[in-house]
Structures are given as structure tokens and as C-alpha cells.
Amino acid sequence: MRDVPWSGTGSDGADTKALVVEGLDVSYGDAKVLFGVSLRVEEGQLVACVGRNGAGKTTLLRTIAGFLRPSAGRIRYGDVDLVGWKPYEIARLGIRYVQQDKRVFSDLTVRENLELASYATGDRNWDIVFHYFPKLKELLDRKGGYLSGGERQMLMIGRALLGNPKVLLIDEPTEGLAPSIVELLRDVFRELKKSSSVVIVEQNLPLVADVADKVYAVKEGRIAAEISDAQAIKGHAYEQYL
């Protein structure tokens, strides 16, 4: 793929920022689900969180995105602590959360979905969306409710790309999608790393092995292992922790 002109601000190195999570505790009512989770995402890195259902991966992303308030711990991006920020403030800072379950607004067309993202971010240039997902251009007037799972995922990631995001938090992007779409997303992830940091929660281990720079194995609300060695990732070394 050709080089893109809007590839973020990171390349000059002046304001490289890492997303750092330290000692995060999160509870739903009385039930504690995350116990002292720490992780670090460097700029331009693709970090994958793997683990079983209910291990707390989604909770982790939702907490970073501001939808859940941790009972302890810090979430730093650059030199700001994001704990206590509202989700929309975090999104405007450039940390975008792409939910699981392929949820788009079923009553709104693709165009309206993108308009909404433009309204939120002030970025009216949709070229980047169509660069990654040219198919969306043909679907502009289709309602979200009539899109296939893959098309919804494209729209969800596409929406999050407006406004020059710094960190993308993507929850279960390939769950239930056709192999061809997974192939497409694999290429997209590889390219996205050049312009932003990416955190994916993923069950598809071959995909993780292909694209991740660092893998966290999450087990029962704790980080069971952190693997950043390329060979180890390729060799699925994290499987033993799941």
C-alpha cells in the first residue's frame, strides 16, 4: 500500500506519547474484575490482549476509554492522568474505543454515521476512511441495520479514524467475520501502526501472531504474562497462560 500523507504526528519524535496503565482495579458493584492491571503501549505499537471470555479484557478497554471508573490505579497518556475523564473527552484527546459486537447505529446511514464522527471531531475529510475501506464509499446511503458484519466493522473502525486518533482501542475486531475480511483487517492493522498506536482484544491467535508487537495474556482479571519478543509472539508462547 502506498504511503499516506496523514500519518500522524509521531514521526518527528517531539511529542511521542505512551499509554501507560498502572495498577488498575475495577469492580462492578461488589464483584471485582480487574486486579492491579498494568500495561504499556508505546507509540506506533500494536498491542494485543488475549485471554478467555470473562478474563476482563473488555473491562480493561472500557476503563481506559472512560466508561468505567477504576477503584484504584492510574491511566496515563503522555503526562495526563485520564482517570475521572469523561468518555467523550478521552475520545477527543485521540483515544478511540471501537466496541465489540459490531454495533453501529442501525437507524442511521453510513453517511450519517460518518457525519456524526465528523461532528464530534471536527474532521470533515473522509479520505482516510475510504483509503482503508474503499467499500464504504459504495455503501454511503445504506442504513447501518442493513450492513453485513464485516461492513459494520469497517464502518466502526473507519469512524474512529476521523480526527487523527493517537490510540485505537479495538475490541474483538474479527469475531464472527469471514476469512477474507479478517485478511483485510490484518493489512489494515499493519498499516495503522504507522500512524497510531493500536490495542486490540483478540481471540484469533494467528492474527495476533501476525500483527502484534507485544502481547498481554489476561487471566482472571490479572496480567498473566507480557511477551514482547517477536519470536515468542510468532511461536504463540502466550498460549500456555490462557
Binding site: 476509554a65 466508561f67 469523561k86 468518555p87 467523550y88 475520545a91 477527543r92 478511540r96 474505543y97 471501537v98 466496541q99 454495533r103 453501529v104 447505529f105 442501525s106 437507524d107 456524526l116 464522527a117 461532528y119 464530534a120 471531531t121 469512524r159 474512529a160 480526527g163
Partner: peptide, 11 residues
């Protein structure tokens, strides 16, 4: 339809 999604977009 889904308030979290809207807020997640930065609205």
C-alpha cells in the same frame, strides 16, 4: 439507540 457509542465517537 446506543449512548455509549455516541460518546465513544467524542460527542
Amino acid at each position: 439507540e446506543d449512548v455509549d457509542q455516541v460518546e465513544g465517537l467524542g460527542v
